[in-house]
């Protein structure tokens, strides 16, 4: 059983300026997940008549991308390739102080406590993160042969869960890794060729319009990414952009 000191960001709503609050929590076991530790804290706060700490989570197995906390200054904590919900308390010691903050980025306004608004990501996808294949009959799946390395490369990029850790970790709050992962996935696949230029133009423009910063090749995004999305995707995005400009693709 561990006892921890928690310093948690409390903010009533997006207008509130916010502040840290300190809590001491005991009864934590190594098999608890980080979010279950927060559940325990909240149960105690509710019984005391205090407002619980609000945070987003859903699947609690690392795939939905809902959860995301800055833990001791690092997005999703210090374990590599791990979402907050997959972080277990066995990685902490009795008596530790843990500082817990929301994602911090201009494009991700805080809604309450540790919940942020990430709808900017949806708008980036809406700008072009798809093939325009309508529902209905299509050629047989095997009519398009895709080599295994190409399929695997598309899959590597496609595993992004849209959690926003890349933005939270980036000193510029850039969404380049998120945006580039989708652009790369569709750029390597034959199905993505038709709209290739238009896609990169529109998605990059939307990313900028949302108020995300620029990429300056620092690489914090890759280190924080729970799905280990490669920073090569950003190089691909830049090449795709340049190539589309050179081709004179419709923007």
């Amino acid at each position: 059983m561990m006892t921890l000191n928690l310093e948690i960001w409390r903010q009533k709503n997006s207008q509130d300026s916010g502040r840290f609050a300190t809590y001491q929590l005991s009864g934590i076991t190594p098999d608890m997940s980080f979010l279950e530790m927060l559940d325990l804290l909240n149960e105690q706060l509710i019984k005391k008549g205090e407002a619980p700490v609000e945070f987003d989570s859903d699947c609690r197995e690392g795939i939905c991308g809902s959860c995301g906390l800055v833990i001791n200054g690092q997005a999703h904590g210090k374990e590599m390739a791990t979402t907050t919900c997959e972080l277990y308390m066995r990685h902490f010691q009795d008596g530790d102080t843990i500082v817990i903050e929301p994602w911090r980025a201009k494009a991700f306004p805080v809604l309450r406590d540790l919940c942020v608004d990430r709808t900017a990501f949806d708008r980036i996808i809406a700008a072009g993160g798809y093939t325009s294949a309508k529902s209905g009959p299509h050629p047989d799946g095997n009519a398009i042969l895709i080599s295994k390395p190409v399929a695997d490369s598309a899959m590597e990029s496609a595993t992004c869960i849209g959690c926003g850790a890349c933005v939270a970790a980036c000193p510029n709050a850039s969404a380049s890794l998120f945006t580039a992962a989708k652009i790369s996935q569709l750029a390597v696949l034959p199905q993505g060729q038709v709209e290739r230029g238009r896609r990169v133009f529109r998605m990059v423009r939307q990313m900028d319009a949302e108020g995300f910063g620029n990429c300056t090749n620092i690489g914090e995004c890759r280190a924080a990414c729970p799905k280990e999305i490669s920073i090569d995707n950003i190089a691909t995005m830049k090449r795709e952009y340049a190539a589309a400009l050179l081709r004179g693709d419709e923007s």
Partner: peptide, 12 residues
């Protein structure tokens, strides 16, 4: 077929 057309990266 629908999902392949959308660019779903099925195993190959």
């Amino acid at each position: 077929d629908q999902c392949v057309a959308q660019g779903v990266p099925f195993a190959r």
